[in-house]
Design a protein around this nucleic acid. Structure first.
Lengths: 292, 292
DNA sequence: GTGTCCAAGGCCGATAAGGCATCGAGTGAT
DNA sequence: ATCACTCGATGCCTTATCGGCCTTGGACAC
């Protein structure tokens, strides 16, 4: 096997076609350079340069080998660069989990920033409900998730990246749509309410339950996704509570109403595994907006 | 700058995730292997492996660097192979000159053999009349030509690769077409004969002149290419002498007639520069049919 | 012939590599 | 809790390799 120094030596000689000048370029003297090239030829088993006391010429094999040698040296250069950039999180892969709803307002700007500031990072998107994201984060299948509590804060760390008010969604012709003022829990008394899966959408489930605690609504449907909720509302199956950004989904036949004071804001968290060693993750965390 | 040995060391450790086993695989002991990997990390400026006394794990940067390292090592392997194959003429480029006529019977089989026996050789085809081929061979623009004498046998070497009889071509309704026996020079007495350029198709020019020396034909047209000759015959502008393989050109309205004894055979030569250093050429010469 | 140019070869000191012995920290069994 | 074991890191020594200096040998120019 030959060495990279021998490759550099050969490339220099092949480009200069002169051992003396090549040696100068390599900051060495001519004799060891001659020996390096000889060694390389012995290692490859082929004469790469034809030389007499007057001139140096590449053989055909030398010509072919030269292009390969250049390629090797270039690759060696870039390999180091790549490793350094990956180490600093400027290159690599970020496996990002997100919920359908988080995508409405957060995902687009985030991806735009990524491609601007970390263009060599591949972001691999996984649309999953929060529990599936948590699972992925714990298994190491995801680097970062955009989801909602709860999760095990021992193992996972998080930061709020978006905060928005809760609002109500009702059919377009519904009496609540015509009140013209923020709705209170009492307004939902006796209403058919579409709520959320206690396991797969626990955050909205609990939000809904807490908000309507004293209103004793009738809850029959429990679904996982915000969009499904709104489609059921549009189909006249009831009313529901959703995050304000759901307006942007553009579903026809429904009206979004503000809700009054007691509504806690809806929070979207960036969630990651404290044990993650992905440098991209740490780089990304430094550029994530911190919403107090 | 790091060394290829360091790359191999790193790859072995990264694959085994165990310094001891990796060292065994590399036929060395564990301590110098540890040092090699440390040196590599220092050279790259990045931690590639995370190791405690219990286990070895790749960092993200290490994972990225591993694929690059494998690529470098693979390239190093193939570079040597390539040079050796080029040296033995099994890979590389053959710039081949040929005349339109030589292509009829010789070029196809030759190219077929090349792609069977030397599949890694690129054959670059140059259709040129013989003098242009000679010129290319002398300038080093061509490695091998398929042409006809004369040429400077001091500088160029050659070998006959195809030998065929001369034959006459006459218009389909011509009196010579109806004789039903081999033609002799005397048959051409008084005929309008289409002959060849004394400079650009000197071989056929001289062949024609020698064959018809005593017949005193009338020669007015002198062209370069066999095909042109035959098209002129088809157009009724005269009769001509061509190599037998010209039948395969499939020109309508002409008849090919055998010619009698005095006809020397038409010889096609493979011609090359004695000074050529292209290993492919020498490899090809060993597989060229030698026609006595 | 003499001087010049240039790659190759001989010789020497410095550097680096590999082997052996050992350390030290973490693990698992008793 | 202790002891044996595992495994990567470190220290020390020997050997191999590398690069520099000096010289050789052959080709070319004047």
């Amino acid at each position: 096997m030959f060495s990279l120094d021998q490759l550099s030596a050969f490339v220099a000689v092949a480009e200069e076609l002169h051992f003396g000048r090549a040696a100068e370029r390599l900051n060495m003297t001519q004799p060891p350079l001659s020996r390096q090239v000889q060694k390389l030829e012995r290692a490859v088993g082929v004469q790469l340069l034809e030389r007499d006391n007057r001139r140096v010429v590449l053989t055909e094999a030398g010509r072919a080998f030269l292009t390969e040698a250049r390629r090797v040296l270039a690759l060696v250069e870039t390999a180091g660069d790549l490793a350094r950039r990956v180490d600093q999180g400027a290159a690599g892969t970020l496996r990002l989990g997100f919920t359908a709803t988080s995508a409405i307002r957060t995902l687009g700007p985030f991806l735009r920033r990524m491609s601007e500031e970390l263009p060599d990072v591949d972001v691999i998107l996984h649309e999953r409900v929060t529990p599936a994201q948590i699972d992925g984060l714990l298994r190491g299948e995801l680097d970062l998730g955009l989801g909602r509590p709860p999760f095990d804060a021992q193992v996972l760390d998080s930061r709020v990246v978006f905060r928005e008010p809760l609002c109500a969604v009702v059919p377009g012709n519904h009496r609540l749509a015509l009140l013209g003022r923020p709705l209170t829990p009492a307004d939902f008394a006796g209403e058919q309410v579409i709520s959320y899966s206690p396991t797969q959408a626990r955050y909205f489930h609990e939000l809904t339950v807490r908000f309507l605690a004293d209103a004793h609504p009738r809850i029959e449907q429990r679904v996982q996704q915000i969009l499904t909720v709104i489609l059921l509302v549009a189909a006249g199956r009831g009313v529901a509570l959703v995050p304000a950004s759901a307006r942007s989904l553009g579903v026809e036949g429904v009206t979004f109403c503000e809700v009054g004071v007691p509504g806690e804001p809806v929070e979207l968290h960036a969630i990651w595994n404290r044990a993650s060693t992905n440098p991209v993750l740490h780089r990304v965390l430094t550029m994530l907006p911190e919403h107090q």
